[in-house]
């Protein structure tokens, strides 16, 4: 959020659009660059899901809240879509929309009381929400399949295209990922994002300029939860098997770790964090429990020594290597003109 307003309204839209297009082109070409290697495609799909989860969670963070109910809403999407498929025979296309709607509805109802709480209390209350969601899946065995979960949630077909093919599913997950990142990025860049951050920075001031803070808090929570639910639907049809444990607090916590390691102040943070940590996670998989220890160490090192996360590295490098603060002149002029007058 530290970037300056001139880059917001008078940014060079063509350059931004070009970067986006280049990124998407690279993602489109990726399966052929790796010769459709199945394992690498799998990792890419997991990376996409993690990006979706972290980015949508970051949207709630932009108002100053960390929701530990996030994986729960992913679960709501997954179970809704799975049940649509298993009970009604409707493919993912219906399930993902139904999941988003059910997720949004529950998120809206829950967030009305939830958003009355603040800071520590919000964190714990959202944790309780996540636990209740998970345990309801486990408790109603007949409907949700209990701790064993639901099986045979098959990927959809579209005309001649069968998404059981991993390359096809890669593109499906990629579409969702690009959609979510694009929505969150746009929201954050425009007035909606300013309103969110203004609530984060000083809720009392924003309400005194006429911003109905609760309305925006509920809206952000609902949108983010609906996006998480869509991710859940795709997750269910990819793995073809889900159980309550896939959506417990650890999933939310890993998404939070992705955000913190990636960086908290722009939408690039969760993306970088999810990509970096998911790849590390895959590389360390053979080490079993050591990989969780290493995760913890990375998290602590980031918090203590790189509090801006990965996204702050370019700026730090610029400052270190060239010793060029971007706004040296203005800094100096302010310090010179008012350094003494300050009381």
């Amino acid at each position: 959020m530290n970037e300056k307003s001139k880059t917001l309204l008078r940014n060079r839209p063509s350059l931004v659009v070009l970067l986006w297009l280049a990124g998407i082109a690279l993602l489109l070409a990726f399966p052929f660059l790796i010769n459709q290697e199945r394992y690498i495609l799998h990792v890419a799909i997991v990376v996409f899901f993690n990006i979706c989860l972290a980015t949508s969670m970051w949207l709630i963070w932009s108002l100053g809240f960390v929701s530990f109910a996030h994986a729960g809403f992913m679960g709501i999407g997954a179970y809704t879509s799975a049940l649509f498929f298993l009970r009604l025979g409707l493919p993912l296309w219906f399930g993902v929309i139904a999941g988003a709607l059910v997720g949004a509805l529950i998120a809206m109802v829950v967030s009305l009381p939830l958003m009355r709480t603040r800071a520590v209390y919000f964190f714990m209350a959202s944790w309780a929400v996540g636990e209740v969601i998970k345990r309801i899946f486990a408790y109603y065995r007949g409907f949700f399949g209990g701790w064993e979960g639901l099986f045979r949630i098959m990927p959809p077909k579209l005309g001649p295209l069968d998404f059981a093919n991993r390359t096809a599913y890669y593109y499906l997950a990629m579409v969702l990922m690009v959609l979510i990142v694009l929505v969150v990025y746009r929201l954050n860049k425009t007035r909606t994002g300013w309103i969110f951050w203004s609530i984060h920075e000083a809720e009392v001031l924003s309400s005194h300029v006429g911003i109905h803070a609760l309305k925006y808090k509920v809206a952000a929570f609902t949108i983010a939860s609906a996006l998480a639910a869509m991710t859940g639907a795709l997750y269910a049809h990819y793995h073809t098997y889900i159980n309550p444990k896939s959506f417990d607090i650890w999933t939310s916590e890993f998404a939070l770790v992705h955000i913190i390691v990636g960086g908290l102040s722009t939408a690039a943070g969760p993306v970088l964090g999810a990509v970096f940590l998911t790849i590390i996670d895959e590389l360390l998989r053979p080490t079993e429990f050591y990989r969780i220890v290493i995760f913890g160490v990375i998290l602590i090192l980031t918090v203590l020594f790189l509090p801006g996360g990965l996204e702050s590295i370019p700026k730090r490098l610029r400052l270190r290597l060239w010793k060029l603060p971007e706004d040296k002149d203005t800094q100096k002029s302010i310090a010179g003109a008012f350094g003494k007058g300050r009381k």
């Binding site: 307003s5 309103i195 920075e201 001031l205």
Partner: peptide
Amino acid sequence: TLFKHFSVLRNVMVGCHLHS
């Protein structure tokens, strides 16, 4: 009480909310 991490201009632009 300000939006401390916003630029000065953006502080005022958020202030415009009601008439934006």
